[in-house]
């Protein structure tokens, strides 16, 4: 086959992927960028070019800044514990093959449940008067908080529900990663005088580090984009306490019909996530060991 034919075949094989990516990812993104430069009337029948004023309005809006902080707060409360917890759970399961089969399924179950159902479940659990969570807390003689109604507790409460939902997904990745850590390396370390914790810290974790990076990036991106739980559990409240950037965007786009501003928010969200991810990669550069 000639070189020319190879080239044609290459493009042909790439075409479906490029087409889907182009139609559903690149074009809409460019469209958002374009729309963010306009102002629309309420019925979206007329648009006027306004330059960067949608962006400057965002930067001058205290509510928008608050949604940015709420987002960081939520991401930190969701992604960090879920990665650490998943790593812990996976390590324990990896060391106990007997439980691994059953518990792997148990941890994966919430992932398979639809977000709406999961959120409903947590609404029942969190109910301040009849919820099971406060029932337990009160049985110890404390007063349970008004989980979803108290601005102080709303983020941790939504975060907890998200962690519960996502944990199994991360556990599966860590279990796969742990299974690929060669047994003889752990044995060599044990012979070299390392205890179980040192084996984990000096051998298992470094070898697992690409998986840790991957799971961290995915968890952070997921947390940034969380919508379902917030929408059902708190509708962004109380008093905007759980109005994240995504939730704010949703409201402006589909309830307030401020298409221009919402488009600008989408662009800002994209930039924030891009920066967040590159910070993670940068942090990882000297710490992740690819084989």
């Amino acid at each position: 086959m000639s070189r020319r034919n190879d080239l044609w075949l290459g493009w042909l094989l790439l075409f479906p992927t490029l087409f889907v990516l182009g139609m559903f990812t690149v074009l809409p993104a460019l469209e958002s960028l374009y729309l963010s430069l306009f102002d629309f009337n309420a019925f979206m029948t007329r648009k006027t070019f306004v330059g960067l004023s949608n962006y400057s309005m965002l930067l001058n809006s205290p509510e928008y800044w608050q949604s940015l902080w709420v987002t960081f707060y939520f991401v930190a409360f969701t992604a960090i514990p879920s990665v650490i917890l998943a790593l812990f759970v996976a390590s324990v399961l990896d060391a106990n093959p007997f439980f691994r089969g059953i518990l792997r399924t148990v941890f994966l179950l919430p992932v398979a449940v639809s977000s709406a159902m999961a959120a409903m479940l947590w609404i029942f659990l969190y109910n301040p008067t009849s919820g099971y969570l406060n029932f337990i807390i009160e049985s110890f003689g404390f007063n349970g908080p008004n989980w979803l109604g108290d601005p102080q507790w709303a983020i941790p409460a939504v975060a907890l529900a998200s962690i519960w939902k996502e944990l199994g997904f991360n556990v599966i990745f860590f279990l796969a990663g742990l299974a690929s850590v060669p047994t003889d390396l752990k044995e060599a370390a044990a012979l070299d005088g390392a205890g179980p914790v040192q084996v984990f810290r000096h051998v298992t974790l470094p070898i697992l580090s690409p998986t840790v990076l991957f799971v961290s990036v995915i968890s952070v991106l997921n947390a940034f984009q969380s919508f379902g739980q917030i929408h059902i559990l708190t509708i962004g409240g109380p008093a905007g306490a759980t109005t994240t950037m995504v939730y704010n965007l949703y409201r402006d786009a589909f309830q307030n019909f401020q298409t221009g501003s919402a488009s600008a928010q989408a662009v800002v969200l994209f930039i924030v996530m891009l920066v967040g991810t590159s910070i993670q990669f940068r942090f990882a550069r000297s710490r992740v060991h690819y084989r």
Binding site: P182, D184, A188, A189, A190, L191, H202
Partner: peptide, 20 residues
């Protein structure tokens, strides 16, 4: 007694060098 307290070292067939 645990491996580390036996005063033995081992050369593995796979060498088992720490790759990182």
């Amino acid at each position: 007694i645990s491996p580390k307290n036996r005063g033995v070292s081992m050369v593995f067939q796979s060498y088992a060098l720490y790759p990182h």
